[in-house]
Design a protein around this nucleic acid. Structure first.
Lengths: 339, 339
DNA sequence: TCATTTTGCTTAAACGATAAAGCAATATTC
DNA sequence: GAATATTGCTTTATCGTTTAAGCAAAATGA
């Protein structure tokens, strides 16, 4: 009941394995295999239900037709959706995906990279964690193709697919301002990652542009590892005092959801008492009583581009990098009030 | 800049690759390698930053230390969470996960199974689609270990991890009845899959047990492929007439979310006008203005059990099957009103 | 001192597939 | 009909690793 190999077919047909290989990889013309024999071999292969051993093929060819995907957390809907588009796109190109979650942790990230590289993935799609610059540098030295998504490091020449975070954030905040909000808080992650810095930068740009003197105390940062507590504290601080915030801009999906859960418990009415806007979509935001206005990242495009760029790099092997910045859309719903 | 192989180390140390292999797989004692040489080899390996080629190892050993995971849709939070627990659990055992989404489609499922098996996964964790019985039968014939999750086929002897759907559903519906609801509708998928049948069965059990004459028109089924339209139609039908439903039981997460989105647009107040209860959790249900009462499936336990049972089967090779049924918890919140 | 055991290493085959090179037998050319 | 080209196949090496088997040299025992 062992798996059928080329040898079994060869024995059955009374020929060498080489001949079988030529036929089954459709090189029979090139290798001048007799028509009759080719047909016979194909028939035997079908009869025995031959399935090529991918591992052996990989060993020989040095290519595994596997992509390694490292996200922050596959259970986060944003990354789950990305994963889905990458899966689909990879499959179209006869690639499979091995994935891992880094939990925004440098050591886990290094671990995952090692494991995936040892498994001979042909390339990696990575959401890099804070402080993982060296890891990427090492990948470059090892000439292992990779593409960053969601974030990148301005100091490191690497292919990446990202959105124009700064402009998108500025657009979101401008929308709040145009909707009449004056005291706009922002809740971001406490991180040096570039995409978050850019979103913060965009927030500040927009305030400045509209001549709103931004108070430092309007910008709050939550630790990834202590999300709940930090967000509650942040919101408490934003909403207390005699000049409480009248709008909050959340830097991501998960921040918004955690924040809204808490805002709900406070009994604060949205958008009347507080306007809310966020990066990223999510069913939770759709279902919220005041559907949340958000910055849509074109996930399908990001996933497709990531796979495309990666496969190009795998094929090319020149170390040229491709940086793609994609525009977002502001999807306006009820959470900021209507003008 | 090629990858370092055993051969490179062997050359550098002036010994055979066999010796290096013995040392680096910690068989140096058993293979009577000299202490000094062992040390030397280890040092050279470290110096050259040797990383074993997993593919070659797999070819030799016939084991890939890879699990294939087939879910309905990785972008569905339920499956994304399952995937996460499976990933973590697999990693603890030095396994990696290759995944694929079947979209509840038999052909895609067959396709995925083929691809994953050809990639020599050591075993599969599968959410089987409707009509995939033969595929599983074939896996059994090929002696490829697999474990089903979320659903299973009563007619097929296979290991599975599932929850006690019937009792859980009955519990949920009983809760509605005890909360004073009289006309309880159910929205399920149009499928013959056993877990859904069981949930429907549990719904009917509960009605019967409480002497409520169930109207056939209270049970609605939506097609996976036409979710939105079918759910809107179902809800319209449930809520129309002079005796509209006063409660709806959704058979899954995605049904509930799609349903609630529509209910929101109708301006129906929950729980005053309509009680809602569902299988599965989700951030959207937490954030809903009347947080939705739900049947919690212990995802962590399911994932852990799936990996454990699968690895046991991979190790054992006896074709004994393990069926695990796990209890759920009813998490009561606001969506059914309070008593 | 000579036979036996132990030590420390090498050789070689294997996993399954691929592909360059080789080699008869047949077909083509002039 | 002899030289050359083509056809149809086999041989062999290879990818990187593992592991049984083999073989000297050194250590032990009598």
């Amino acid at each position: 009941m062992k798996k059928v190999s080329l040898k079994d077919i060869a024995t059955e047909a009374g020929v060498s394995t080489a001949l079988v290989s030529y036929v089954l990889t459709n090189k029979d013309k090139k290798a001048r295999v007799g028509e009759g024999m080719a047909k016979k071999i194909r028939e035997i292969a079908r009869k025995l239900n031959y399935q090529p051993n991918h591992i052996a093929r990989s060993l020989k060819s040095g290519r595994s037709f596997t992509i390694g995907l490292i996200v922050a957390d596959i259970s986060n809907p944003f990354f789950a959706n990305i994963a889905r588009t990458i899966e689909d796109e990879a499959k179209k190109n006869n690639y499979n995906v091995i994935f891992g979650s880094s939990d925004e942790n440098v050591d886990k990230s290094q671990d995952l990279i090692n494991v995936l590289v040892n498994r001979q993935v042909d390339g990696l799609i990575i959401t890099p964690t804070e402080g993982s610059e060296q890891q990427l540098q090492q990948l470059k030295e090892q000439k292992i193709p990779f593409v960053l998504i969601d974030r990148f490091f301005p100091g490191i020449a690497a292919s990446y697919i990202a959105v124009n975070n700064r402009e998108s954030a500025a657009g979101a905040v401008s929308h709040l301002i145009k909707a009449g909000r004056k005291r706009i808080g922002m809740v971001a992650y406490k991180t040096t990652l570039h995409h978050i810095s850019e979103r913060i930068g965009g927030y500040q740009d927009a305030l400045q542009q509209h001549k709103i003197k931004a108070s430092n105390s309007w910008l709050k940062k939550a630790r990834y590892s202590h999300l709940k507590e930090d967000i509650q504290l942040a919101i408490d601080q934003l909403l207390k005092g005699k000049q409480p915030a009248d709008a909050i801009f959340f830097a991501t999906n998960s921040l918004a959801i955690e924040g809204l859960k808490y805002i709900n418990t406070l009994g604060i009415r949205i958008p009347d008492e507080l306007a809310v806007i966020t990066f990223d979509e999510g069913e939770a935001l759709d279902l919220f009583y005041a559907p949340v206005t958000f910055v849509r990242q074109p996930i399908l495009e990001i996933g497709k581009a990531a796979v495309r760029v990666l496969l190009e790099q795998i094929a090319d092997d020149t170390s040229a990098t491709t940086a793609i910045s994609i525009d977002t859309t502001l999807v306006i719903r009820k959470s900021c009030g209507s003008r």
